[in-house]
Write a protein that binds this DNA or RNA. Sequence first.
DNA 1: GTGAAAGCGCTAACAC
DNA 2: GTGTTAGCGCTTTCAC
Lengths: 343, 343
Amino acid sequence: MKVTISDIAKKAGVSKSTVSRILNGNYGQNTKDTVDKVLKVIKELDYRPNALAQSLKSMKTNVIGIILSNLKNPFWARVLEGVEDTCRKNGYNLMICNSNEDELLEEEHIKAFLMRQVDGIIINATVKNDHLYKRLIDQKFPFVTINRKIPGLDIDLVTMDNVAGSMAGVEHLIGQGKNSIALFVYPQENVSPRLDRIEGYMKALISNGIEIDHSLIHVVEEKQGRVKEAVKKLLSTTNRPDAIFSTNNMMTLEILEGIKEMGLNVPKDISLVGYDETVWSMHLNPPLTTVYQPSYDMGELAAKRVIELIEKTGDLQPITHILQPNLIIRESCGTKKEEFISE
Amino acid sequence: MKVTISDIAKKAGVSKSTVSRILNGNYGQNTKDTVDKVLKVIKELDYRPNALAQSLKSMKTNVIGIILSNLKNPFWARVLEGVEDTCRKNGYNLMICNSNEDELLEEEHIKAFLMRQVDGIIINATVKNDHLYKRLIDQKFPFVTINRKIPGLDIDLVTMDNVAGSMAGVEHLIGQGKNSIALFVYPQENVSPRLDRIEGYMKALISNGIEIDHSLIHVVEEKQGRVKEAVKKLLSTTNRPDAIFSTNNMMTLEILEGIKEMGLNVPKDISLVGYDETVWSMHLNPPLTTVYQPSYDMGELAAKRVIELIEKTGDLQPITHILQPNLIIRESCGTKKEEFISE
DNA sequence: GTGAAAGCGCTAACAC
DNA sequence: GTGTTAGCGCTTTCAC
């Protein structure tokens, strides 16, 4: 059924090696006659080499594995596009897995990737499998982390400057005259982007001489309606804040709803800045001021780096690549004109 | 460096065949002693078989390839999740490619998948490579299309009932007393979902005794701002329509903006129904009535089907699986309460 | 109960 | 210039 190199060799009346040579462009040494003959048979039989056999021989698959945890979030879908484009342009195929933030699944996926002999792995780590990550880098396996820093391990990383992003958002609010700024974050995950955003919030306040009021920091569970509840409770206090800084794009939508249900107006009664620009941010009412993160670039850079690790000889020192977010100013803090503050 | 089956055999003092048997659970015939010994060495050396070699031998990779065209759209991200989950549960890995609606890229990807010996392919086809699709099904290669029907070819398909979805949306508008309903669609792609949505629109009108006014059908390019422009122009006419039916989730956002810029109110001045429920639909102002499509299910079913084609013997006849959309009624057509009209 | 050997499809070192 | 051969890591038939 399937046509192999032997079939070509037989039909062309040459040996497998000759076919292989011609296949791989080592024409130089062959008669034009042979080359033409072989090429013709290849065309005729529509022969395509079995990548499995090639890979087994060469111990290189030209496959990169990526493990993500939440494709639903457009941020990650965009990262994936960056990775995929870059892989394709460089002759690699992409194998994708979803860890769903589950460390057992993550382990399973990493092991499966290794068995499949992928050339490299890109991962948004759960940060709960340190022994595994460590083993990979100890073996000099091409391994690049994205978004989350893994504390205590020196691994290639492409991430965002979350402190800066957070500071930009909060300082914009301060610049608009706000000084009672509530912060909303999800709980649990003690991962760097979350911690850095909290840090950025605090830094912005401190460097502007505003005292940190811990009652304004709201850690709210990621369950349906919890954020809205918390917002409504917050806004019904006598001295309600004059601004909210949201650290997540889904969360922002719920905050908006809570504000609306309290009969309050953005930005007249309260200002709002969201984290993560999305396709819908500009279409909300009012158009939302958000922190844009170059997600496609993150994917692209991570893919480039893992390919570099695969193809370069000698061991490269781990590099951390930090991308800068931009604040996109719209109307949710009282400003009218839409503009970009660039890096 | 890498540990192979020979290493295990040597260290355990047995032959490769014995190790292989034990590895694959053919314990029955072996001494408990041998089994324990081998298992112990495997643990010690953290041996994991090379999937490449296994696949080359068995001619089965347990890899499924998927070709999509637009991950940015949350609809597709969700489909991908359904596919990925299902693959994982069934012991398959997923290889993903982006065709970007480009038939040359699509061809390249299909060929790469075949060279890599993937066990099956799922595709949202550009519908421009009929000869390729045909060749696959002629060879009985496990091949499942999603979303778009390929005219003239009898291929397994998992798709949505776009006629019904469109009808449900338009009939809801009619039920609210609207009888001048504008339709917005993107041009070019003569693909079944688009055509079916247009058909649904017409059917709904006809079956309700409303004459089709072709000046209300707007085919607008997918370029930044074009839709908004068209909406504004439409709404500045003397006898403007009393409702708009949008056939795409991105388009809907622009329509809303156009309406807003004209100083009009939804639903007071004009009603709006959007196609494709999204995370943000309920947070728009007003909360949007939309046609929900079970995208995760589509992914899941497509994956299940391709696995069935891979694992079942004998040739199965192509099946078309049509999923039913639901209309989610919110406030953009004058209704207040949010409710689900189920299938 | 276990081992030897062939072979999956390909590449490359070596011979002529 | 081209063919022969060995081998990538694994499975499996066939001996013993």
